[in-house]
Design a protein around this nucleic acid. Structure first.
Lengths: 244, 244
DNA sequence: GAGTGGTCTAGACCACCCG
DNA sequence: GGGTGGTCTAGACCACTCT
């Protein structure tokens, strides 16, 4: 424990919950290497006493890190920092940030933005009524100016009446209107590129692509987005974390 | 709330924690349809009082269901049952069970079972020393007698000294020896089938396949298994859940 | 204003690990 | 036996929703 414990002390007047502040500070300390793998954290009771919080609050912070896989709990012994696992990038972030984290320059080019009446597939996937209108966005995704995916998105008209309102980032639009997706289901398969896809992505016809279908949901359970992505195999790889 | 609340009462002498018992009973009630979507749960205080437990305990049970996406919490209003989402099959279960749940008859055929010295890739992925021995299993996975995947697994020798000890299920072997994987990272890409793969899987050369690399970890963070799977696109699809 | 979930406290007992 | 995490209790205050 090279850190001064006092640096972890949360601020009771900051507005953010104490347990969240503590979880974030501990997480940062681990990421920065101030806390080393296999090292043990101060005990829950020690943390509580030194930081002037209750043990339940300290515990809740530690629970968060444990749930993220950063800590190993050992009953009767202590809480230990996990040997570093690769972080799954499959969390719900926008595409550009994901690529930027991997060191690429992300870009996109619109193929079309239109409105229309929902197809049967869209009605089912998004939980709409047969006559509802939807907005559709189609674009090419690029990394360092290389096409890495062809992406088609459908959004219910009530959430996006005018598709041209989305300038760069769909997620940016949704967050700005307080419609942040909280969970999503992805179906991932492999397909051979069609002639049209090959031409768009500048690859050979028949080349293997990842075909990803994603439905995103709001916190209240309503579907907000249906996206089909065709991803160039050479550049794109999906990383997922499984739990037992 | 058609159920009698008394049926949810946990047993203090059962050995399993109260909050877990309650979470399971609530979960069952939802799955069975005894609690309908959009219906609200009794308030946390009511649950606590009727079931003779503290609010914190009731809350912890409800937290579990919320984290599983079964409940929608509404501050100042109540806890509501979520409209049913498709369950992601990407949790950490064995292959056979996963297929069985989808209504297939799962099978496998061994191609080879051997021991050897860890390759560089295996050393890195599994956190071994360069001279460590490993066991390697290679097999074909079938559903209703159709080959759907070609799978190669590497396990550190200290966990599996004799590869022929694995009869049918690797996970069965690991659980029996108290080595249950608790989390895993999967990398998922798309590749074109080689001539050899095409012949094994009875598909055309060049056909798109999912290429999945999985590393599984024990609760203590040690890697237990490295698996490469080539999955036939027509039959296999990976389902993942993302979080915000 | 009454009821709800969100946070926090102070204290308790247990099972477990370790020296 | 002393310290640890795992569970549980009985209270408290807040911000929010509903009507």
């Amino acid at each position: 424990m090279p850190v001064h414990l006092s640096e972890l002390k949360p601020d009771a007047n900051s507005g953010t919950p104490l347990y969240l502040q503590l979880a974030n500070k501990l997480s940062d300390a681990i990421q920065d290497g101030a806390l080393q793998p296999d090292e043990s954290l101060p005990s829950e009771r020690t943390l509580a006493e030194v930081l002037n919080i209750s043990r339940a609050t300290a515990r809740k912070a530690i629970d968060i890190l444990h749930e993220k896989g950063m800590l190993l709990r050992k009953r009767g012994s202590g809480n230990y920092i996990m040997p570093r696992l690769e972080q799954p990038l499959a969390s719900l972030t926008n595409f550009s940030e994901e690529l930027r984290q991997r060191g690429f320059r992300a870009g996109s080019r619109w193929l079309s933005r239109e409105t229309g009446v929902a197809t049967t597939q869209e009605v089912v996937a998004l939980g709409l009524s047969p006559c509802d209108t939807v907005s559709r966005l189609k674009r090419l995704r690029t990394a360092d100016n290389v096409v890495i995916a062809i992406e088609s998105t459908t959004i219910p008209g009530k959430y996006l009446p005018d598709p041209s309102a989305v300038r760069d980032s769909l997620y940016g639009y949704l967050y700005a209107r307080n419609l942040p997706p909280s969970r999503a289901l992805q179906h991932i398969g492999a397909v051979n590129a069609t002639a049209e896809q090959a031409q768009l992505a500048n690859i050979a016809q028949g080349e293997a692509m990842l075909f990803i279908t994603r439905v995103s949901y709001l916190e209240n359970g309503n579907a907000i987005e249906l996206t089909h992505s065709y991803c160039v195999g050479d550049y794109y790889e999906f990383v997922a974390e499984l739990r037992g």
